[in-house]
Amino acid sequence: MEITNYAVLACILFAIGATTVLLRRNAIVVFMGVELMLNATNLAFVTFARVHGDVTGQVLAFFVMVVAAAEVVVGLAIIVTIFRTRRSASVDDVNLLKG
């Protein structure tokens, strides 16, 4: 097996995550799509760290995980706040910023 199979898998997962963000309406599922994309990049990082024999790729994947955790906390807090005021978690219903 070629080690690039992992990279191809990462590409497929990333594309599926991007499609989820484009298609789904539920803000939480859209968020899960973002998480899937971040995970796919992590897989690519780990794979290329192995190709190059250098753990820097793994360190970067670690940073991605930490930033993703912070992003999820803030994002979900925003979703909860919007849900409180609008009683909806659908991205279609959020046009609060419209004049």
Partner: peptide
């Protein structure tokens, strides 16, 4: 349909680059 098309195109481009 636009979303599905974009997603598929994205997957093809990415895997094409890797291949």
């Amino acid at each position: 349909w636009i979303g599905v098309l974009l997603g598929l195109g994205f997957a093809v481009v990415l895997t094409g680059v890797v291949a």
